[in-house]
Design a protein around this nucleic acid. Structure first.
Length: 510
RNA sequence: GAACCCGUAGCUCAGCUGGUAGAGCAUCGCCCUUUUAAGGCGAGGGCCGUUGGUUCGAAUCCAACCGGGUUCACCA
């Protein structure tokens, strides 16, 4: 081994090489000197760790296998060694002895935790009882040049796993998710469940004949939600464009165009604060179905979410944090004002902005001077009701000022046909009977413009093309939006949105 | 945006009544052909987040900045 480097340590883009990294580069050179290609092209793996472990029988029959994966631990004992190799299904122990692999044993000495190898051999059970692969051959498939965090595990007498020195630094875990995924097996599980949730929803909608569509992310006018947008610029057209905050108005244009049901898993972007339940880009599922109303949509949501829970968690009743949540239908349905009445004893129906402000004062809630009555009501609801709603609950019938895209209530003056589902104290989805009266819609936009003048940066912007579409005629339509990240948080029992997004937004590293 | 907490070896952490750095794992050398948090003996490894200040002397005290976490605000 070359122990006197002639030149100063080279640098990567991120940092100077430390001892461990220099060491691994030297081993890489050694491998090449031995005629080994440390980065070959192919390996024909025919088995996976999980499948080998579950199908093993102690019947003396020799079963030959070939696996590929990353070395996660090594125990060297002179002329024989054990290591654990991790593939997509988990880990399996590999036993190598010099008598069996010959010259290659010297190559194995040049390998480290983190290197990717292919192993051929037969399955056996060790004296200590662990099902393992007795290697006859192995191949280097990729030499790792960086030390992986070392996480050790021990299984106690009761079969519980004790983890020593877990890789737990959240900053490193999020910035280097690839490392997190390698050493923290639970992380992968969450994302596999996330994929499963998407698959189930897709299947559920496709079976009903709804069409999955794609609509613009770059929009000349942003709309469909209350939020501040990201702005970007298109050079060739020399126009500013907005990253969408919602795809609602485009999906409804498609309903005008004659689709009876459309949905999109949309990455939306909102230029706002970040916290445990907000990432600047997030995934929203929106669905629009013609000739249906919000009552119909409530039934769909109830059925679909409990179906997802059953398939992903295996039950409709399960623990999320400290709470046991029961998605079994039917869920409670209560109007927004009745819910406020229930939790505060205050009746808000028919109250003016002044009266609402008085009530807020009695409840000791601070209200910003620029707030309109809708904002006051929402503040009261958010403070006193939402956090108390643990079991899935439909909150229905919102004041018209809060919902400029929702249709007027068929019987309650001043309200719209809208519902949200609140679970575990957080909004899970939002839906309404869509406003399809173009004249009413124009008035609602005008109300929003007035709010904007009053200083509300999040008030919605008038979209003339959308109004034109409505003027051609949109059928009665039910619409729904579900936050996929939040749904995933619930079903995987994660309390931070960063744990259900592979690469959450972070400040630049340098 | 605000408050509080944190930043020491590749990883997980100790050291913080100021005297210039420590453990376990990982790494290196020797021994070890069924081990498993393998073991035994020995060794190396640090701009103590950055920049200033106080001091004879700072990982330790102070300030600013950078990054992270938590809570609150915002996100209806």
């Amino acid at each position: 081994m070359d122990n006197n480097p002639q030149s100063a340590p080279e640098k990567t883009h991120l940092e100077e090489l430390n001892e461990l990294m220099i060491r691994r580069r030297q081993e890489l050179d050694e491998l090449v000197k031995h005629g080994i290609n440390p980065y070959p092209y192919l390996f024909s793996q025919t088995n996976y760790s999980g499948e080998i472990l579950s199908s093993f029988k102690d019947d003396g029959q020799q079963v030959n296998v070939s696996i590929a994966g990353r070395i996660m631990s090594i125990r060297r004992m002179g002329k024989a060694s054990f290591c654990h190799v991790q593939d997509s299904q988990g880990k399996i122990q590999v036993y190598l002895k010099k008598d069996d692999v010959g010259e290659m044993y010297d190559i194995f000495k040049l390998l480290d935790i983190g290197d990717i190898v292919g192993v051929e051999g037969f399955v056996f059970r060790t004296k200590m009882g662990e099902i393992s692969i007795h290697a006859r051959k192995f191949e280097v498939l990729s030499k790792s040049l960086r030390p992986l965090p070392i996480v050790k595990e021990k299984v106690d007498e009761k079969g519980n796993k004790i983890v020593y020195d877990p890789f737990s630094d959240k900053e490193l875990r999020y910035r280097q998710r690839y490392v997190d995924l390698v050493v923290n097996p639970g992380v992968k599980e969450v994302f596999i469940k996330r994929a499963k949730i998407l698959r189930i929803i897709r299947k559920y909608f496709d079976e009903r004949g709804y069409i999955e569509v794609e609509t613009p992310i770059l929009q000349p006018i942003y709309g469909g939600a209350f939020a501040r947008p990201f702005i970007t610029h298109h050079n060739a057209l020399d126009v500013d464009l907005y990253l969408r905050i919602a795809d609602e108005l485009y999906l409804k244009r498609l309903i005008v165009g004659g689709f009876d049901g459309v949905y999109e898993f949309a990455k939306d972007f909102r230029n706002e604060g970040m916290d445990r339940s907000h990432n600047p880009e997030f995934t929203m599922l929106e669905l629009y179905v013609a000739y249906k109303d919000y009552v119909w949509m409530m039934n769909l949501v109830e059925e679909m979410v409990s179906t997802i829970a059953k398939e992903v968690v295996g039950a409709t009743k399960f623990k999320v944090g400290d709470n046991e949540i029961d998605f079994t239908s039917p869920w409670k349905r209560i109007s927004m004002f009745d819910a406020i009445m229930e939790y505060t004893g205050k009746q808000l129906k028919g109250k003016s902005e002044q009266e609402l402000r008085m009530i807020a004062k009695e409840l000791k809630i601070e209200i910003e001077p620029g707030a309109d009555s809708a904002a006051v009501i929402d503040e009261i609801f958010g403070e006193f009701v939402e956090p108390k709603l643990i079991q899935p609950t439909f909150i229905t019938d919102y004041p018209v000022e809060m919902s400029p895209l929702a249709k007027k209530h068929r019987s309650e003056q001043g309200f719209v046909e809208r519902f949200e589902v609140i679970v575990n104290g957080h909004e899970l989805c939002n839906a309404f009977s869509e406003l399809n009266d173009p004249l009413d819609q124009r008035q609602r936009f005008e109300e929003q413009m007035k709010l904007r003048v009053r200083g509300n940066e999040e008030a919605q912007v008038q979209d003339e093309d959308y109004l034109r579409a409505l003027e051609y005629g949109m059928p009665p339509t039910a619409g729904l939006g579900i936050g996929i990240d939040r749904l995933t948080m619930l079903l995987t029992n994660q309390d931070s949105i960063r744990d259900v997004i592979f690469f959450p937004q972070m400040k630049p590293e340098h």
